[in-house]
């Protein structure tokens, strides 16, 4: 994260609409290589939309968004380049239910990265070990607990060896006792130097790993600060209220 280094993700005055409803309003945000950003904010504030723009799941209408220097929204080639370097983990896991765990992990490497099957299998097995479920390789997703499924989903993304990882409320669909096993995996990933943007309301995790906190409300970035400042002296009223509510439980 050297000073003046080109940011790996850069939003400049990005607008996004759903019909006439403006979900993102003049978003400007920079993420440096290796930086860990945690995004929070009330429901419907546009957090998911913000990170979905980064891997092209949503297209913005105005402003510029570039990932590793490639501008999004130009053509297919640039979209393909960008999405191959961005991994994403979803709230609902979105594992492929008809494939075993190892097949879920191997599909991307074999079909998109064109790795030979044996190499892809070794890679998949390595990442399963990294998320600590190597013994579940031949099971189907439905046979695993929610926490295990989410760890498989993380491993599936990592098998593409992305340089950026996006997390959209990865623990919101989990039973409380499974949240930590997923957060532990994410913490390890953060420690390994991965560039990460996490939408989450797990503030303990945010304090531990975030380099930068972003608070969104009504499609705007209302507050952007390091975790110290963010949690101790938030500037805006909206952010103060939000933190008060969320930190109560």
């Amino acid at each position: 994260m050297g000073e003046g280094a080109e940011p790996i993700i850069r939003f400049e005055a990005v607008d996004k609409f759903f019909g006439s409803f403006q979900v993102l309003k003049k978003i400007s945000l920079e993420v440096a290589l290796g930086e860990r950003v945690v995004v929070c904010g009330p429901s419907g504030s546009g957090k998911s939309t913000l990170i979905r723009c980064i891997n092209g799941l949503e297209q913005h209408e105005a402003g510029t968004l570039s990932v590793e220097g490639t501008k999004l929204g130009q053509d297919h080639a640039s979209l393909n380049r960008v999405r191959s370097s961005v991994g994403m983990v979803f709230q609902q896991f979105n594992l492929f239910p008809h494939l075993t765990v190892i097949e879920n992990l191997m599909l991307g490497p074999v079909r998109a990265r064109k790795l030979p099957r044996e190499e892809a299998r070794d890679l998949a097995q390595r990442y399963l070990e990294r998320v600590r479920i190597p013994e579940q390789a031949d099971k189907y997703p439905r046979q695993l607990s929610g926490g295990q499924q989410q760890r498989v989903a993380i491993a599936r993304s990592l098998c593409m060896e992305p340089r950026i990882m996006l997390f959209d409320e990865p623990t919101s669909a989990l039973d409380p006792e499974m949240i930590n096993e997923v957060l532990d995996v994410m913490t390890e990933l953060a420690e390994s130097g991965m560039t990460m943007i996490c939408v989450t309301h797990e503030m303990g995790f945010a304090r531990r790993v975030a380099d930068k906190m972003v608070f969104m409300d009504h499609g705007e970035i209302v507050e952007e600060a390091g975790p110290e400042t963010f949690f101790n002296t938030p500037k805006s009223r909206r952010c103060q209220d939000f933190l008060q509510k969320i930190l109560q439980h």
């Binding site: 092209g56 999405r83 191959s84 991994g87 599909l107 991307g108 998109a112 599936r156 593409m160």
Partner: peptide
């Protein structure tokens, strides 16, 4: 979306 995110 999952397929998109693994570049299929």
């Amino acid at each position: 979306e999952a397929a998109h995110s693994i570049s299929l």
